[in-house]
Computed example of a mutant assay.
Amino acid sequence: MIRAYAAFAAGGELQPFDYDPGELNQNEVEIDVVFCGICHSDLSMVDNEWGISQYPLVPGHEVVGTIAARGENVTNLEVGDTVGLGWHAGYCMTCSNCMQGDHNMCTSAEGTIVGHHGGFADKVRAQAASVIKLPEGIDLDSAGPLFCGGITVFNPLIQFGIKPTDSVAVIGIGGLGHMALQFLNAWGCQVTAFTSSEAKTKEAMELGAHRVINSRDPEALEGAAGQFDLVLSTVNAKMDWNKYIATLKTRGRLHLVGATLEPLDLHLFPMLMGQRSVSASPVGAPANIARMLEFAVRHNIKPIIEKFRFDQVNDALAHLRSGRARYRIVLTK
């Protein structure tokens, strides 16, 4: 039996939930969970904001633990290995996306918390292809958030060939944004932080920003016109996106990784005349997650975390809902 915490209805508090996972699949591993980060996506799934939740729902897709058992076909992981598991618990491994290494784009991918029980538990199972062995020297306490938030902001650097000579701005200095600043600074970019909170200016600079712009100041936004190769939005709120498109250079890109549910109101001509683009992306493929982890160790990049015990999971979720989390929450035994 696996002992977990599950929501039994949309928006409900998590309760103890035991389930029998059955026989271990020949391509799966079972992980003894030691740490599990809490992501805003966990809240979205608990609340069924996206209309895809199934109850009872066991959240948790930023897992760090050790391999307790492996299926007979698993050769890339050993019992006792320290590993991580992110948003995806499995892939079809045969579609064109998987065959090209874009596993995160697999239309048949199995979500760790979508129709599958996640990591708010003592154990979790996943296909071995989606489980990544952690590199030596990584901080285990804070590694979990890298498997969702970290790869979400790192993946665009790979996908769009961001260069060390590029000028990049980040909208929102929170759970995603504070990691983006660190990655971009280590990548070699000129880094600007857009924030609506003056109180975050000093911290944004400490995290890697070379400059901070108050996004509530119209003159400051206008003064940034035509300056950025990439503007990375990490917020899930409705914004005046046209103001940020105006800050892009010719052929610049506004890229969204924050899961806003509001439609985007965009003026075409500033995009057309400057050949600017707008895009979005989800997490990343296993190979890029492994690259991201190695890069994080090399440059000592760590999420800023707050810890709660697993039996304090409802307190932890309430803290996240309050907006006071700084900046990622991790459950620990």
Results as ranks from 00 to 15, higher is better:
residue 1 M to Q: 09
residue 5 Y to C: 02
residue 6 A to Y: 09
residue 8 F to G: 01
residue 12 G to T: 03
residue 15 Q to D: 13
residue 24 L to K: 05
residue 25 N to L: 11
residue 36 C to R: 01
residue 55 Y to L: 04
residue 67 I to M: 08
residue 71 G to V: 10
residue 76 N to S: 13
residue 77 L to M: 08
residue 80 G to F: 13
residue 93 M to Y: 08
residue 96 S to F: 05
residue 100 Q to A: 15
residue 104 N to R: 02
residue 105 M to L: 14
residue 116 H to N: 08
residue 118 G to L: 05
residue 120 F to N: 04
residue 136 E to S: 15
residue 142 S to A: 14
residue 149 G to V: 05
residue 151 I to M: 04
residue 152 T to G: 01
residue 166 D to N: 13
residue 167 S to R: 10
residue 172 G to Y: 08
residue 174 G to V: 08
residue 177 G to H: 00
residue 182 Q to K: 10
residue 185 N to A: 06
residue 190 Q to M: 09
residue 190 Q to T: 14
residue 202 K to V: 12
residue 206 E to V: 03
residue 212 V to N: 01
residue 213 I to R: 00
residue 214 N to D: 15
residue 215 S to G: 10
residue 217 D to R: 02
residue 219 E to Q: 14
residue 230 L to W: 05
residue 233 S to N: 12
residue 238 K to V: 14
residue 239 M to Y: 12
residue 243 K to P: 00
residue 256 L to T: 11
residue 257 V to E: 12
residue 274 G to R: 04
residue 274 G to T: 09
residue 282 P to W: 03
residue 285 A to F: 06
residue 288 N to D: 15
residue 288 N to K: 06
residue 290 A to L: 09
residue 298 R to W: 08
residue 306 E to W: 02
residue 311 D to N: 13
residue 314 N to V: 06
residue 317 L to H: 00
residue 317 L to S: 02
residue 318 A to L: 05
residue 322 S to R: 08
residue 322 S to I: 06
residue 324 R to V: 06
residue 325 A to G: 02
residue 326 R to P: 00
residue 326 R to N: 09
